[in-house]
Amino acid sequence: MTIIGAAPATGRRKTPPVRGRRRWTFDRISLFVVFLVLPFLGYLTLVIYPFLQAAYYSLTSWSGFTATQDFIGLDNYTRLLGDATFLKAVGNSLTLLVVVPLLTLVLSFALACLVTFGGSSTGGVRGLRGSSFYRVVSFFPYIVPAIATGIIFAAVYDPSAGLLNGILTSLGFGSAEDYPWLGDASTAMAATVAVIVWTFVGFYTVLFVAAIKGIPAELFEAARLDGAGRFRTAVSIAAPSMTGALRSAYIYLGIFALDAFVFVSVLNPGGGPQNSTLVITQQIYSTAFRQGRFGLACAMGVLLAVITFVFVGIVFAVGKLLGREKKAEVLR
């Protein structure tokens, strides 16, 4: 650790004169322009500027269709905090934020373990028979565009003509006849989550397979010689060795779950029974384009941004705490 940390320091002491001499060469300037200035300008105009613009609009009563805006201070935020429908949407988004990554990661981690070291316990460490086939098949749902997935599942969940109720009733579950999976407040959210998880499991399985393959095979062999079963190997060898992949996956999935616009708006365009699947992004869309209240919609967008920042912050903080514990363990 100290050696690695010291290396750049010595380098830094040596470089200043070199840097000074080479500062204005064409090579250096073109490098800066192409790799720093241009992307930064793009970032400024396409990301930062819209950000600031949205933040400003959130303080106005802009309808979206006029050239000027009236400044109204924090009124939009006060309104949102007292708006039961919006708070419901925030609650639903947070539910998705917790449930979707958790389910997806657990399932895809389990699948990844099965196809990498879940196979026969004699001979070399390997996955289940036909695991390369499973790996390819599990990736299929991810290739289907989200909108198509939504439409397909809307048909699958159809109360009278849907595949799901057809299978359930033929299996003898009479109560499934005409049951509106997406139309009942108690099942609509679960049905939606199932679709999202179905879509993403395969992709993260492939990601985790790669992460597991990056762990030295000797570790798995050693663990098996020491008598560790498959579950113990997954929990004590695979998982701790791929915390980086798990954390990145968690953040990407979380950010996706906060959006989820495509899936919820295809499955239940109106927010679902008793608004049980209404999410913030849907609310932003209808407030802006249906009700013509862009100012208010921008305020929602800003709040969503804040929630996202907080979420990513928490994930990193938790990761750091766990990392510190692990280090302490190693020292002991």
Binding site: P50, Y57, I255, L258, T281, Y285, A288, L304, A305
Partner: peptide, 9 residues
């Protein structure tokens, strides 16, 4: 992740 929802509005 935030760029999309905010950009939308």
């Amino acid at each position: 992740g935030v760029a999309l929802p905010v950009g939308l509005s």
